[in-house]
Design a protein around this nucleic acid. Structure first.
Lengths: 192, 192
DNA sequence: AAATAAATTGACCATTGGTTAGTTAATGAT
DNA sequence: ATCATTAACTAACCAATGGTCAATTTATTT
């Protein structure tokens, strides 16, 4: 009655994600093709479609892990030593750092408009923003409006999305000073 | 000795730009193809390459006009009646409005990384930013640092780039209230 | 009329994401 | 052990893309 179970899998989900991840470090979404991944794995590109519905879903699987990493980064900062202002500043700065040290991922997480996986994508992105907003909110205790947290996020996003993929900006280190100035700029609002 | 002069041109530069412009209102850069433009013009897509080096240059020609429109918007606002704060607020708001009412253009102007035309693109974009920064600076008279103007721009850019291409956001009208809140948020910094 | 060269076509190329008929091979039931 | 089932995979195929180019048309200068 029962059909055969899982069975042999020469090509595992992990292997595919790993190969995609590899190429994702060097090239962005549009420059990593299903064929280039298949080539690295030594299989036909059609085989990938047995494991993922389409290209968008494959890359979204990668990106889901990154959302968790980002959340963790924020939550850990909240628990560190230091004044509330210092923590706030670090949360903002680390958001920028995350974005610029994971540019390909950031692009899909917050910039790419997928069409195919948008319902899933938006859900996860929303939860991650909520985590950010709750954390920031808890460090302000009513001194700040919900609207302003959203504006802060958009301002950080503006920084990252501008420098993301910008020539000669390969990592956070390349824009550290400007990033610190931007965070300082945003913190002025939290002082008033 | 001298070869024939300009000659008849069944296909003018203006006609091509107009056709591209038309489709650009409905679809973004990646969804307007050289072939779809040629189809609208009733010519072969190869003909377009006689007038433009490549797709990027064709669209960049459109976008150059938009940079001037944006500059004009800023400069005209400076000359209107009202307090400096009111003018500042209007400049910010109209930047957002421009971005969301010309989403396809905004995408190329400030979001798209072209590779082919980057040297031209960056030059024009820089001049447009300079116009913005000078205008904002003149409304503050030393109360604000150059760094902060850049941060302000990035924050506005964050707003636009987030809502640009977002589902159900077809124009500025769809996000007017949030935009006003964002501008108000930014203005707090100018008060301190 | 001939020569010239701008303007345009249309066939072609490589690449892309995606589909699918057909094959291979592992498993469960007999 | 055999057979049926089905997951896993291949390879050929499709339509669309940006781009190139030899060949052709067409207008203009001489």
């Amino acid at each position: 009655m029962s059909p055969r179970r899982p069975a042999s899998q020469d090509l595992t989900l992990e292997m595919i994600l790993q190969a995609a991840q590899n190429q994702f470090l060097e090239n962005d979404y549009s420059h990593v093709s299903m064929r280039s991944i298949a080539k690295e794995l030594g299989c036909s590109h059609g085989a990938l479609y047995h494991h993922f519905k389409n290209k968008a879903e494959l890359f979204y699987a990668i990106v889901e892990q990154d959302f968790r990493k980002l959340d963790l980064l924020t939550n850990q900062t909240l628990l560190e030593d230091g004044t509330k202002k210092k923590k706030l500043s670090l949360i903002f700065l680390r958001f920028i750092q995350f974005g610029l040290d994971n540019q390909s991922s950031y692009e899909i997480m917050f910039m790419y408009r997928s069409e195919e996986v948008n319902s899933l994508a938006k859900e996860v992105a929303y939860l991650s923003y909520k985590n950010f907003a709750d954390t920031v909110g808890s460090l302000c205790e009513g001194h700040i409006r919900i609207k302003d947290i959203w504006s802060t996020f958009l301002s950080l996003h503006g920084f990252v999305s501008h420098y993301c993929g910008y020539p000669r900006v390969d990592s956070f280190a390349d824009v550290k000073e400007v990033a610190e100035a931007h965070v300082e700029f945003l913190l002025k609002i939290y002082e008033s």
